Amino acid sequence: MTGPRDLRVSDAEREHVVSLLNKAVGRGMITLDEFTTRTDTALAAVTRADLNAVLVDLPGMVNSEGGHARTELKNSFGTTVRKGHWVVPRELVIRNTLGSTNLDFTEADVPPLVDVELDVSVGSVKLVLPPTASVNIDAVEIQAGEIKDKVRNGVGNPHFHVRGYVRGGSVVIKRKR
């Protein structure tokens, strides 16, 4: 599997880092020449590692869109629900055994890219995405279960990259009506 630092970045993420560099200039942390060099690097970034390299020596200037870096939702024999206004982490792990997890992203603060890792055993997961969102489910392995992707497109913002395992369970991905 691909590590988080090796994931490709979007134009929105590059622009966010450029805005952080702009703040760094305003705070006197870097010169205009450094800003130009770092901005060129950020705009040419392909992976998260490339992008974060321009911020690594700037205290308080972290590419932390979406709040917390990683959140794990564990559920056994119960129900986990997130809806309304909530801050979506950049990485979300769903561990679900004989339970259900229902996540509604339509009113949430969502970063441009969300990496969702599934570990579902005889349970269900429902993801309700914002109207402009896209999703990629190519890295989901299904064993005696099913995944229903009602979004079915690969380009949009925010983008959800869903991967992991579904054993005897179901995953439904759709947009709110």
Rank of each mutant, 00 (worst) to 15 (best):
M1E: 11
T2F: 09
G3C: 03
D6H: 15
R8Q: 12
R8E: 05
A12T: 12
A12Y: 05
A12Q: 14
R14F: 01
H16L: 14
S19N: 15
S19Y: 12
S19T: 10
S19D: 15
L21K: 02
K23V: 14
G28F: 12
G28I: 07
T31M: 08
T31V: 06
D33R: 13
E34Q: 15
T36A: 11
T37R: 14
R38A: 05
D40P: 06
T41F: 07
A42D: 05
A42T: 01
L43E: 09
L43M: 15
A45K: 00
V46D: 08
L51C: 00
D57L: 14
L58E: 07
P59K: 15
G60R: 14
G60N: 12
M61R: 11
S64Y: 12
E65H: 04
G66C: 07
G67S: 06
H68K: 11
A69I: 00
A69M: 06
A69K: 12
E72P: 00
E72C: 05
L73Y: 12
L73T: 09
K74G: 00
K74E: 06
F77I: 00
G78W: 05
G78F: 02
K83F: 03
G84W: 10
H85P: 00
H85M: 08
W86C: 10
V87F: 00
P89R: 09
V93P: 02
T97Y: 08
L98A: 13
G99A: 02
G99P: 04
S100G: 06
N102P: 00
D104M: 05
D104E: 09
F105W: 06
F105Y: 13
A108R: 11
D109G: 03
D109F: 11
L113Y: 08
D115Y: 11
S124P: 01
S124V: 03
V125M: 02
K126H: 10
K126Y: 07
L127E: 04
L127F: 14
V128W: 03
T132V: 01
S134K: 08
V135K: 02
N136W: 03
N136D: 15
A139K: 14
V140Y: 06
V140E: 05
Q143D: 10
G145I: 09
E146N: 15
K148D: 10
K150W: 14
R152G: 11
R152E: 14
N153H: 13
G154E: 15
N157Y: 11
N157S: 14
H159L: 11
H159V: 06
F160S: 01
V162G: 01
G164I: 01
V171Q: 07
V171K: 04
V171I: 14
